[in-house]
């Protein structure tokens, strides 16, 4: 853990040094405060800061200088792992390209985000990420998790029946492919159980707004949601 952090920090320093030596220092375009607001579209899936863990997406601590698809304990798409092996490393330039249109830069990524076409918004977001992730707050694992509103608590407490979940999943896999492939509809395969339960409750309560999902979750009770979470969290993306 410590070693990993040290290496990430080292890589970050290297990348920063390389950038500094190869070109005149990049002026800081982005505005961190505005970037924090932009990040609200991301934080349903990605955690940063003290105690950040993998959720639906990988945590972003020590992001800059990190090889793509390289963190332990997160089930990346094979496309993302391949890009990492081929040398993709996250920095301001690669993030800018990726965030503009993720599926164009990494076809097959399971990140369900269409992209940020607004250049300034990307600069703001990257400035925020640089500040929020480079301080490597994961170095303090004993720090409490960031407070998250209580949601889906009753379903969280139920041990989901995966067999029931598999039957109920018939409703989901008409659109969300069981293989984990995405072709315009997000993958829901292999999400952490808590993240899955949380997402369904957020659709059910219209915290997340989507016509189809709010309809599909309207008739799901705690048992059903727990069952679906048990089933989908147990699947591995192909």
């Amino acid at each position: 853990m410590l070693w990993g952090r040290g290496l990430s920090g080292f890589l970050f320093a290297m990348v920063a040094a390389a950038a500094a030596s190869a070109a005149p220092p990049e002026p800081e375009h982005g505005n961190r405060e505005r970037g924090k607001t932009v990040f609200e579209a991301c934080n349903g899936c990605h955690q940063v800061g003290a105690g950040a863990r993998h959720g639906i997406g990988p945590h972003l601590d020590a992001l800059f200088g990190r090889r793509a698809g390289s963190l332990d304990g997160f089930r990346y798409s094979s496309a993302m792992r391949r890009r990492g092996k081929d040398g993709l490393v996250w920095d301001a330039a690669t993030l800018d390209r990726y965030l503009q249109k993720p599926r164009r830069m990494v076809p097959g990524t399971r990140m369900s985000f269409r992209g940020l076409s607004d250049k300034r918004a990307r600069e703001d977001l990257i400035a925020y990420l640089k500040a929020a992730t480079a301080s490597a707050p994961a170095s303090n694992p004993s720090a409490p998790s960031p407070p998250r509103p209580e949601i889906g608590g009753a379903a969280m407490a139920i041990e989901g029946d995966a067999a029931y979940g598999e039957y109920l999943a018939g409703e989901c896999v008409t659109c969300h492919q069981r293989s984990g492939r995405t072709d315009g509809i997000p993958s829901i395969v292999g999400w952490p159980r808590e993240a899955f339960i949380r997402a369904l409750f957020e659709y059910k309560s219209n915290v997340r707004r989507h016509q189809v999902m709010s309809m599909m979750t309207a008739n799901l009770g705690n048992e059903e949601i727990a069952a679906l979470a048990a089933f989908f969290s147990g699947l591995d993306p192909q």
């Binding site: 659109c175 069981r178 293989s179 995405t182 315009g184």
Partner: peptide, 14 residues
């Protein structure tokens, strides 16, 4: 529209 493309891929796989 993008969702409908995803649905087509999903349902035909199903």
């Amino acid at each position: 529209y993008e969702e409908s493309l995803g649905w087509y891929a999903g349902i035909t796989a199903d």
